[in-house]
């Protein structure tokens, strides 16, 4: 593999929830010791359910929330602790598209200014020069010059997401962080945006950090997948391997819970229905965070978090089922 574009090591983000007179301050470990790499032009999807920390991970990479531990390297530079002007200077390499195109666009700005603002802020282009660039960007995302003087309210959800993407690619970023960028859209429009993202990746070689809860979409767009649960990555690997041979029991359950849009297939497949809910991130269980719902739980799972074990077919999983030593021990114990 070439040198990674983004390299995240042991990243942790802790939120401190202020207590009251009789309530102590509580600490929420939204992200807890997460490591991953993204190669130039690669798409890494981070999947997980609500509370898994996937959005916080994205925000930490964007430096929108402060990491409490670990490091983030972008293009060889340590950006973990950058502030002010130095942080501003790396921003063009690193852009983001949010979930809700209704709140991510300023309703009082015309589209030319929405898309052109990053060009102005970073002193790339002004005046007529800027307008020429904005027009090219709009065309790149499938909109036209005649859209430039309109306001966001005049556009549908799908069109707004195109505008948000045009703004995000204006500075030719190397990494685009997409946080549930197609989740708010209907299927017919969602696919238009996914195809656009594929085209942009091919034309511009942008790498994507694609945060999503929709496994169907992820399988389609990602090169590699990281599965998160309660602030940790429990499994990661090439998309084909994750979907064909999930190694972690949580990944397996997650895949089996997604209903397949074909009644004959869906009604004849073996499904794993997990008991209970995801535990509160304020009081995560000790050991493996998944052990409270895991159908294969062993004693060792309840005390110590398993390390990542490399898997055949690529990637790794943090589960004692794949750790020969642990399974041996539990067999002796029982």
């Amino acid at each position: 593999m070439t040198a990674p574009l983004l390299s995240v090591r042991d990243l942790a983000v802790t939120f401190h929830l202020r207590g009251g007179l009789l309530r102590p301050t509580r600490h929420l470990k939204a992200v807890n010791g997460v490591s991953f790499d993204i190669a130039p032009g690669e798409t890494l999807a981070v999947v997980g359910e609500s509370g898994s920390g996937k959005s916080t991970m994205a925000r930490a990479v964007m430096r929108l929330v402060e990491p409490s531990a670990g490091s983030i390297h972008l293009d060889g530079d340590d950006i973990t602790a950058l502030r002010g002007e130095p942080l501003r200077r790396i921003r063009p390499k690193l852009q983001m598209v949010f979930q809700d195109p209704y709140s991510s666009l300023d309703p009082s700005m015309i589209i030319a200014d929405v898309v052109g603002e990053p060009l102005t802020v970073h002193g790339v282009a002004t005046g007529a020069d800027r307008d020429v660039r904005v027009q090219a960007l709009l065309e790149q995302v499938g909109l036209g010059r005649y859209h430039m003087n309109r306001y966001p309210y005049e556009f549908s959800g799908g069109q707004r997401q195109r505008i948000a993407i045009a703004r995000a690619i204006a500075l030719q970023p190397k990494l685009l962080v997409l946080d549930e960028a197609v989740s708010a859209l209907d299927v017919s429009t969602q696919n238009q945006i996914l195809n656009l993202l594929e085209d942009l990746r091919r034309e511009l070689g942008i790498a994507y950090l694609f945060i999503s809860h929709d496994l169907g979409v992820v399988e389609h767009i990602a090169d590699r997948v990281a599965v998160t649960y309660l602030g940790r990555i429990v499994e990661e690997g090439p998309t084909e391997r994750i979907f064909a041979k999930p190694a972690h029991p949580y990944t397996e359950a997650l895949l089996s819970a997604v209903p397949i849009p074909n009644p004959r297939v869906q009604r004849s497949r073996r499904r794993i229905v997990l008991p209970g809910d995801v535990p509160s991130p304020l009081a995560p269980p000790p050991g493996c965070p998944f052990h409270t719902r895991c159908p294969h739980v062993m004693d060792v799972c309840k005390t110590v978090m398993p390390a990542h074990t490399p898997m055949a077919g690529g990637g790794s999983a943090a589960c004692y089922l794949h750790d020969p030593q642990a399974t041996e021990d539990s067999r002796c114990a029982s």
Partner: peptide, 19 residues
């Protein structure tokens, strides 16, 4: 338009336009 399993890389069918 439903993303189908095992069709990575194939272009997704989209209904053009909006309702």
């Amino acid at each position: 338009a439903m993303p189908q399993l095992g069709e990575r890389g194939k272009r997704l069918a989209a209904i053009p336009g909006t309702p």
